[in-house]
Amino acid sequence: MTAVQAVALVVVALAGTAVALTRDPARQALVAGIFGFSLAILFLAFQAPDVALSQIVVGAVALPAMIIYAYRKVQRREEVERGQR
């Protein structure tokens, strides 16, 4: 195992833990994006560039964006419901 691979593994472990420890969903989406990007670096370090590219676009772009949009939608509904009371 090369130094790059070892560092990538450690970074992934740290980023994954950070995602689990973040409580606010909006922040969590951003941290999950960073975690997705660190996974992509890991795949690249282990010589899987194709998977790394998919991981960047899905893990670092699409997934956090979807979480934020869905979260915003739920929040909006809560605002409306609170306004009704």
């Binding site: 979807m66 949009y69 939608k73």
Partner: peptide
């Protein structure tokens, strides 16, 4: 994405 944003 467009549909989710629209719903805002």
């Amino acid at each position: 994405v467009g549909e989710l944003l629209d719903q805002r």
